[in-house]
């Protein structure tokens, strides 16, 4: 369970990223966050694992405050949160296997990880998650030889390998074509339903958000302006969120 308690974020230059956000995300939810670019979607998502520091309020993960966590505790909490992002965040020159293993760095000692002394169980787990994302044959392939969709599947495999209870996905399909976008989100959805992991995803496409989410959040200028089921997301709401911009054009993407 993730809770936001009066969370605000002001950047050093005075720009407000988030304004008084209150929110609870339950275990096993598939939540989409929509809004214009610059509305604070990324800021909100990245404050969950504290890649962004918030300036006011508190965020707790399963009852433990990540905002007040010290360095050690922060690393411990981060182990339980997976991150998938638009640029895939892979080491392009490394193999698929090594990228997947980087998901568990938080569990291995520095020396063991440097010399690649991983356990037998983890090797088995790695093969298993790669099978799940249909990349079992690419074990020793370098990531820069893979297509965009395949690379994103590697980063999904990494979060599965991490065995995180929460998966954050920051614009996971923004640089992929529509067919591949469908595939990737279906993958995330099936992980959400079969493995009961919470998934929080930032997304530009309203169509995809409606199709896959249990719940949609809308941000406008750092404020949470909508929080409800996909069915409740009417055109009037969208008109407000997108300030009259042609949101339909957005959803076409």
């Amino acid at each position: 369970m993730i809770t936001f308690d009066h969370v605000s974020k002001t950047y050093p230059n005075g720009v407000k990223g988030l304004i008084d956000v209150n929110l609870t995300i339950n275990d096993g939810d598939f939540v989409s966050i929509i809004g214009l670019s610059g509305a604070g979607k990324s800021t909100l998502l990245r404050s969950i694992n504290r890649l962004n520091e918030i300036t006011e309020g508190e965020i707790t993960i399963d009852g433990q405050s990540i905002t007040k966590a010290n360095k050690r505790e922060l690393k411990r909490i981060r182990r339980t949160i997976g991150l998938i992002s638009q640029q895939f965040n892979l080491v392009k020159r490394s193999t698929v296997q090594k990228n997947v293993f980087s998901g568990k760095l938080g569990y291995y000692s520095t020396l063991k990880s440097i010399f690649g002394l991983f356990s037998k169980e983890d090797y088995a787990l790695c093969n298993e998650v790669l099978k799940k994302v249909e990349l079992a044959d690419k074990l020793h392939e370098r990531c820069d030889n893979l297509s965009g969709g395949q690379q994103q599947r590697v980063s999904i495999a990494r979060t599965l390998f991490q065995e995180a209870g929460i998966i954050l996905a920051d614009e996971p399909v923004a640089s992929l074509d529509p067919a591949t976008s469908q595939e990737i989100l279906s993958e995330l959805k099936s992980i959400n339903t079969t493995m009961h992991k919470s998934v929080v995803v930032n997304i530009h496409s309203i169509g995809l958000a409606r199709q896959f989410s249990d719940r949609i959040l809308a941000l406008q200028d750092g404020r949470l302006v909508f929080d409800g089921k996909p069915g409740e997301l009417t055109n009037d709401v969208l008109e407000m969120v997108y300030k009259g911009d042609s949101f339909l054009g957005e959803s076409e993407r």
């Binding site: 193999t95 090594k98 690649g116 991983f118 037998k120 090797y123 074990l139 020793h140």
Partner: peptide
């Protein structure tokens, strides 16, 4: 487990 399946395959 064979070494060719590990990260040390090369």
């Amino acid at each position: 487990m064979k070494i060719k399946d590990t990260v040390h395959f090369q």
